[in-house]
Amino acid sequence: MTIQILVFLILAAIAIGTAVGMLVSRNAIYAVLFLVSNFITVAVLYLLLGAPFISLAQVTVYAGAIMVLFLFVIMLLGGEKLPVAAGWGKQRWAIIGVAVVVLVEAGLLLVLKGDMSLMLIESAMDAGPASIGMTLFTKYALPFELTSVILLSALVGAIVLTKQDKP
């Protein structure tokens, strides 16, 4: 268990590091790559929790499909170089407020929920593809189908919005 916590701490450090890197990077391509590394690190965390299906779905969907599109659009539009940092301006207090709230919540969670090793044990359940499929299509069938309808309507909406009238 100690090795598992050690690995978790290393991965968590990488995840936080890449997330911060994404935020402070002044080059959009590097920001995308930091985010990709972050997604992959989180996928490895899922693997550590005994959820290979979620882990690989995360890599396929987020690190693979979505971020490739991000990269594609950035390269196509040539918007790699962001302007020099303009300072936080009026958003400063909002940023500090959100950061304080998140930190306090994380601290409360740690204090109230006890140590991390307990959380690791609780989540180590059967999360194979078969059981996930059964759960999705029986217990959560309605939310699942609703999500797909929402995604479909978003897709149709995007096409309608960008479609130009024939001249």
Binding site: L56, A57, V59, T60, G64, A65
Partner: peptide, 10 residues
């Protein structure tokens, strides 16, 4: 199979 999909996608 999902592993293969994930690696090809990256």
């Amino acid at each position: 199979v999902l592993y293969i999909m994930a690696i090809t996608s990256i």
